[in-house]
């Protein structure tokens, strides 16, 4: 085990996969000479050269089409989109190409690319640089969407994503890059589609991904002081979703809070709520609570932004209300 920052864990995953497989290459805006705005690709251009680590112009639509064609022709590209807010520019490649080519060509086409991006608020980055758009991406069948919360999962899941033959959208969070954690040494992958129980509890289940797992863990501490035992499930992967883990936890606690940093309407928390009702309706002792961003743009003002974002305190309040 080594203590690492989340960004360093991602950097290690990219380096190891590039060393192991010459078909892996990186491209994106400012990822080469500058090392990426969050320093995830630091030092990789020096080590692997300008052919395998490419700086590109600002043109997300072209970059995504490039990822699709490069993946189709036998390489394993890893594309970085600097902010998730600009992922909508890549949607044609995702919705009309990457997600369906395997289907319309009857399995003859593989699509092994990774689209790395980061989203989320809390950094005062304003309405165009703070969004979590994971619900929109998880809506597309044929694409995997993952959002690890720890450095260990960040490394293990990025390695698994690069080796996956399906397109994977890899969601990072700007406030997680500097978080530290133990990361296993060596070639350790974490399977996509498996949730992790990060804190066991008996009264209520809280389902979250990415930075919301950190908030949920803080909420569990607050709830413990209230005499409530909260179980925190880090879904890790939004699609495919680990439904068995959800059912197992609900069958134990009979109460659930679905947390997602994105908007509420048609959002991922709504999908979790519906999934729970589909599979474990008769286990529910109260309606599933949702903790999400309100359906509004994210303000630049720090107090307003803080008031809007899902937080430990909001998760605690939702849990207590559910248990009434």
């Amino acid at each position: 085990m080594a203590m690492m920052r989340y960004a360093e864990a991602l950097n290690a995953a990219l380096r190891e996969e590039m060393q192991a497989d010459p078909s892996v290459f990186l491209f994106g805006e400012d990822i080469g000479r500058y090392g990426g705005v969050f320093k995830v690709t630091k030092g990789l251009m020096e080590e692997f050269g300008q052919t395998r680590v490419r700086d590109t112009p600002i043109s997300e639509q072209a970059l995504a089409a490039m990822a699709v064609t490069a993946a189709m022709t036998g390489t394993r590209p890893v594309l970085e989109i600097m902010y998730a807010d600009f992922v909508p520019l890549t949607l044609d490649a995702l919705v009309n190409q990457a997600s369906i080519y395997n289907y319309i060509w009857n399995g003859q086409v593989k699509m092994p690319f990774v689209l790395r991006t980061q989203g989320g608020g809390g950094a005062g980055a304003g309405a165009q640089h703070s969004k979590a758009l994971d619900s929109m991406l998880a809506h597309i069948p044929g694409i995997k969407v993952v959002a690890p919360s720890t450095p260990a999962d960040a490394k293990g899941m990025l390695k698994a994503a690069i080796r996956d033959d399906q397109p994977v959208v890899f969601l990072e969070h700007k406030l997680l890059y500097n978080t530290r954690g133990e990361v296993p040494e060596g070639d350790v992958t974490v399977p996509l589609g498996k949730a992790a129980t990060v804190r066991a509890g008996s009264d209520i289940s809280v389902f979250a991904t990415s930075k919301m797992v950190i908030e949920a863990l803080k909420a569990a501490d607050l709830l413990a002081a209230d005499g409530v035992s909260a179980e925190i499930i880090d879904l890790r992967s939004l699609r495919p979703l680990d439904v068995s883990a959800i059912i197992a936890s609900i069958s134990k606690t009979h109460h659930a809070v679905a947390v997602n940093e994105g908007w509420r309407f048609c959002g991922y928390a709504a999908e979790l709520s519906a999934t729970i009702m589909d599979h474990a309706f008769d286990e529910l002792d109260a309606p599933v609570a949702r903790v999400t961003l309100p359906d509004m743009p994210i303000p630049y003002s720090e107090p307003l932004e803080t008031a809007m974002l899902p937080s430990a305190e909001k998760i605690r309040a939702a849990a207590l209300k559910t248990l009434k």
């Binding site: 009979h254 309706f281 008769d282 286990e283 529910l284 002792d285 109260a286």
Partner: peptide, 12 residues
């Protein structure tokens, strides 16, 4: 005659 309000788990 009025509708009973109960959680799905309680009903089961």
């Amino acid at each position: 005659g009025s509708r009973v309000i109960a959680s799905p788990l309680a009903r089961r």
